[in-house]
Amino acid sequence: MTATLIFLALLMGAVVWWLVRQTINVKPWVASAPSGAQQGVGFLAPPKVALGVLLAVITSLFALFISAYSIRMELSDWRPLPEPDLLWVNTAILFVGSLGLQWAWRGAAREQWPAIRGGLVVGGGCALAFMAGQVLAWQGLAASGYLVASNPANSFFYVLTGLHVLHLLGGLVALARTSGHAWAGALAKTRLGVELCAVYWHFLFVVWLILFGLMLST
């Protein structure tokens, strides 16, 4: 459970630090007229805060899986499976997708529609390509006899990669909506959507790096 505990310790540390900043020296029983600055976390748009919270939840989910992985790995029947080389290609594809959305984000800040639309296409296309690549990797492994149930290492490989792909699928739904706004030319909505998608794509790329690193090193 170390991975999860480290994550939670960091998170709780951040929460406590933030609370201390908010509350130390405040005497709540003293009445005062409201001040605008007292409200919210630096006035971020709620969807951005919601994304932050959602990422914390997803991190918790993957951290717990990684904890389970590291506990189960210690048991005697663990036989590591050979990671297909295709995964390196997939990693690169996902990275390009992340870059694409970063490009779109920059474009959104400067109101450059070609960059926005181009970036969205690159991001979405790479995500689709990555998923196709993952499916190919699964098929390859299954064909060489590494089935889900034949060893816990295999089971974890399929479950973790599958869960990651599922999260990417969810992201694609959001990306599709944002693209709708982008092609309709609604700037405010596109800006927000592109920013959220970009952060989510970066996040999933980092998660993938951690998962891939974990599976390579064990």
């Binding site: 709540p28 409201p34 001040s35 007292q38 409200q39 919210g40 709620p46 805060v49 919270v53």
Partner: peptide
């Protein structure tokens, strides 16, 4: 849960500090 958290964080009215 996302709703509850974000509402508490971002949708408090004027003067409603955390404390």
């Amino acid at each position: 849960g996302l709703n509850y958290v974000v509402t508490v964080l971002q949708a408090r009215t004027r003067g409603m500090t955390l404390m």
